[in-house]
Nucleic acid binder design. Structure first.
Lengths: 345, 345
DNA sequence: CGCGAGCGCGGAAACGTTTTCCGGATGACG
DNA sequence: CGTCATCCGGAAAACGTTTCCGCGCTCGCG
């Protein structure tokens, strides 16, 4: 518990403003919040006092008295993951537009910390929580109104991309280019969102008569493994895949980060993208437009997710309607330069 | 101002805990904070009451009374920029270790919003602020104890990487590989940190008898321009550079994002990296290890910057020592696969 | 002219803590 | 046995707001 210096000059309070303006504190409060009638002349005097004293409301006091903080907590696994960072950006922007403050916390991919974060947010009196769990197995739950994001919980209100549809979009795109020999690289065998992408992908293939064998789906080490270990593992998978008897003509990586790392390995091995092999990612992080080759991917609409999540939270808080169910946001295929028809044999 | 439902069941307060435990509120407070002697038997009774009621301290009330929030504000331009996101991650982690809460705000690269953010943080009673300004020209300043980060302000306590040294490290590396024809790609002509990198680079070259002409330093459009516009501009610069009479054998991009976009353009144009041209970035964002080719770059030590900044802030808050000056964090060269000796003519 | 309505404002009670001050009990020691 | 220090706990005052209640005044209307 660090030592903190008491502020040198005490800050102006609503009381000092009232004294300077020659009115009662209640009147100042009404002027600040527009919560009651105040004559224009009085309002002007109050405003002058505020400006002169440099008064700023004390949100702790307001929150204490009004039992309302106008702030919501956002818990997510890790800002170093570009997708989460960009999601945080979108959410913060949307909340700001609504006049709400964001309290951003990182769980560091550690489910054990999530409980503590929820307690912290409760102690800080947030009105609600937007919660991206560290893993699908994480079971932390607070007493606050919560909307789950990206990683839904059955029976709880949540907002996520339609991952199955996303996977299907990829399948459709690759099939229409003429690909028939396909493979999937996923980072973690257990992640539900990733699993849905693969399921949607496989189902769409099957509907068009193309079979995706189990051995065509390669998974990296479980979530939580060190990044460089996962990269090495991924590199091995790529090599194994491309050196097999019937190498795929297209690869679906279940996230852009994996896709970018896959592209690196393919290029290192001397394969050309998309000439020798097509590559599709997922998320559409900003970086995916800048790498070589610019990545064909599935865009998760972060702004829409943010809007949807905040709407759901407000509905939950207003409490007059039935709590919203699990909402799906439509993903969109973004075609760039990493996909093309397969080379004719 | 959104409507917020009053909480259904009122939360347990320190008063209710005291009643259940059969003690006075002051005693509960002492037990919670260890701020006074309390007998073990009493402490046990209190703890049982706390557990039974599911009590959580109300930080608004504590902050109001104790005039101390144990939280610090962090203002940065944009989480969608991977370097800032990773910096935020490091800072949040370091603050958490110190038992401090982080209030993260984005200015969206907009200097006009910074003033409002500072007011917000003041209203929320943060103990201090870590401030990454949106631009070197942004002049916003609050009344809170502030440590400037990454973009220093003359005469104010600040923490930043030693950008000149970083630039010199790049020069040294490229010179020792045998490069003599060099070029620089920077994103923004006016940014001081970027300027220092270029200055350090040019100065180190000059010391070794290599001249960097003005026309060898290409700058993108000013900060704030839309991302895709900047990418197009950058592409043009790369092309122009490589099609010139004496194309460089090595390029220094003043950030990893620019380097990655440069690599893309070079590869699109058919150049091999590092065979045809070497490429060096700056920052060492995580992605730079995953792209092709893995990027030689200068690592900004985010953890050290976070430690340094928090240390400076605590010193500023304790107030007994002279406020710390402008601190520089040492950057380190990270050699990967994007640099090699120049092709012999 | 009388009366009710409503506007503008003041007063005061909360909100949940921390902190200070004080008193009672207990133990040690002469 | 008396005195004093020590330990533990109670009481109450703040912290800066919001909100409720009520009062005086003005104005419109019959």
């Amino acid at each position: 518990m660090p030592i903190v210096r008491a502020r040198a000059r005490p800050r102006a309070t609503i009381t000092s403003v009232a004294r300077v303006a020659g009115v009662a504190v209640g009147t100042v409060s009404k002027h600040l919040n527009g919560s009651g009638p105040v004559a224009v002349a009085t309002a002007r005097r109050i405003q002058q006092a505020i400006d002169r004293l440099g008064y700023r409301v004390n949100l702790s006091a307001r929150c204490l008295r009004a039992r309302r903080s106008d702030s919501v907590g956002l818990i997510l696994p890790n800002l170093a993951n570009p997708f989460f960072a960009e999601l945080a950006h979108a959410i913060q922007q949307a909340l700001t537009e609504r006049g709400l403050q964001t309290l951003l916390c990182e769980s560091d991919e550690n489910p054990d910390r999530e409980g503590r974060l929820l307690e912290d947010l409760e102690a800080r009196q947030v009105d609600g929580v937007l919660f991206v769990r560290a893993s699908d197995r994480s079971t932390a739950a607070g007493r606050l109104p919560t909307i789950y994001l990206d990683r839904p919980v059955a029976g709880r209100p949540s907002v996520a991309s339609d991952n199955k549809l996303g996977g299907a979009l990829v399948a459709q795109h690759l099939l229409s280019l003429g690909h028939r020999r396909l493979a999937v690289l996923r980072e973690d065998r257990t992640a539900v969102s990733t699993g849905d992408r693969v399921k949607g992908f496989a189902a769409a293939l099957r509907r068009r008569g193309v079979n995706l064998r189990d051995e065509d789906v390669l998974a990296g080490p479980p979530c939580g493994t060190a990044a460089h270990v996962r990269a090495v593992e991924l590199g091995r998978h790529v090599q194994e895949l491309m050196r097999s008897k019937a190498p795929p003509t297209a690869i679906f990586a279940t996230s852009d980060v994996v896709a970018i790392a896959t592209a690196r390995r393919l290029l290192e091995l001397g394969f050309k993208i998309p000439d020798d092999v097509s590559l599709v990612g997922f998320d559409d992080i900003e970086m995916s437009a800048y790498v070589f080759p610019p990545l064909t991917t599935v865009r998760q609409d972060r702004a829409a997710m943010a809007r949807e999540a905040i709407g759901a939270l407000e509905q939950l808080l207003s409490g007059d309607e039935a709590p919203p169910a699990e909402a799906l946001v439509e993903p969109k295929l973004v075609v760039r330069a990493s996909t093309a028809p397969p080379r004719m044999p």
